[in-house]
Design a protein around this nucleic acid. Structure first.
Lengths: 230, 230
DNA sequence: CGTTTTATTGACACGTGTCAAGGGTGGTGG
DNA sequence: CCACCACCCTTGACACGTGTCAATAAAACG
């Protein structure tokens, strides 16, 4: 239980939370181990649990009525999952899929609502987190609306680096598998175009990493140039 | 003051709010009359006030570094404006412009934070509203990523109808000026393509309304077909 | 080691942006 | 009140980015 509290304490959702809030949350929570490719829930299901990712990484998928898939974003440790749906009493709007093993804590809808109602700090933190997601989406909408594919891919990779990048010998690594198809679904394009673009960048020595090996960005500054200029 | 309270009471942000919450909010609020084309604040400014639109209608603009403009959404009576920025202590991410005369109530950042901290109902409502915006944006992102321009325009017009439509003799009217350019900026396209598309629809008798007269959708069902099918 | 998934690469077509040239409407000022 | 101006819209021609189709190759998986 103390271990759980110290996990909670480090997340943005529990920032500045007092002891009672932490204890109440820790007691009401369940734990869930996640294996790669497992889902927390499915888009369209009734929202009965909300989650907090303790460690690991998730991809948030949204499927169109005609079966195409869009990656809304990636989620990392400390991110809330399904919280908006639970509090609004709406079906989950998307499906979170684990891209690596991880662990999540979860609360029933009632417990989560009670937590937030009784601890203003948590409510404020929730607004911060959700608001941050909203602003990030607005930024992506703008990118999608105004920029070419190449630039969007560059921006996306940089965002992944910022959110999850890890320094390695020859640059920065994105520490989980990221297929061309996933990159395509993040950028509203096709894996073909992604493949062509990354091939070109590989030739230019901007990045490397084929197949299931992780992407390594060797010249981040060049990516920044591509994302900002031209 | 009582008039103000009754305005507040009808908004989603104050849904289920108790008397003290309403009174505190009403007392701390300022009022601001809005004329067409006036802005509440500008993208990039420090967020010192948050607003609640009492009546009228706003367009939320976001400008790219290179000067292009994207319409994030339209806001109507009861919508919160600038709240996320204020609570996160970040600069406003966009600029709200009045598309018709209206009135807004506003609170200082401190007052708004206090309100939300002291009245859990308001916090919950804020999460609902912001969460709803988040889910709407996710939906739009998906549209943008997977659908052709024509379909997106149809979906956008239907959304406007749902949010602000008014029944008239020969169909449903969008009760404020909506230039081709604005429609373009909502759909990540150019006014040229919008013009062509609307011309075609006009010939088909789906809608009418040139220039500064308001758009009237005469065959909403056809728009639904275009938005959903094909 | 075969099977399946994922990536690469080329050829081509199509949607839609770009460029360009009017045309109409509303507003403003003389 | 009329004339002019500015703005917005319309329409056509064209080009370009990027999706689609197709074939092959390479890696991953059991």
């Amino acid at each position: 239980m103390d271990a759980r509290k110290s996990v909670l304490q480090r997340t943005a959702f529990f920032k500045n939370a007092d002891g009672p809030a932490l204890s109440a949350a820790a007691e009401a929570a369940g734990e869930l181990a996640l294996k790669k490719d497992e889902t927390l829930f499915h888009q369209g299901e009734e929202a009965s649990y909300s989650y907090l990712l303790a460690w690991g990484r998730l991809r948030l998928d949204q499927t169109t009525p005609d079966g195409r898939n869009v990656v809304i974003r990636y989620l990392g440790p400390g991110d809330l999952v399904g919280t908006v749906a639970v509090l609004r009493r709406k079906p989950y709007p998307a499906t979170p899929v684990a891209v690596e093993d991880g662990m999540a804590l979860f609360w029933s809808a009632a417990a989560k609502a009670k937590l937030i109602a009784e601890h203003p700090t948590l409510a404020a933190n929730a607004i911060n987190l959700i608001g941050g997601r909203l602003e990030e989406l607005q930024e992506r909408l703008q990118e999608l609306a105004t920029q070419r594919v190449e630039r969007r891919i560059a921006a996306t990779l940089l965002r992944m680096v910022r959110q999850a990048g890890r320094r390695v010998a020859d640059g920065v690594e994105i520490p989980f598998t990221l297929s061309r198809n996933e990159i395509a679904e993040m950028n509203a394009t096709t894996l073909h175009t992604v493949s062509r673009t990354l091939s070109a960048w590989e030739q230019e020595g901007i990045l490397s990493g084929k197949r299931s090996s992780h992407l390594v960005i060797t010249k981040p500054h060049r990516l920044v140039e591509i994302a900002e200029h031209e």
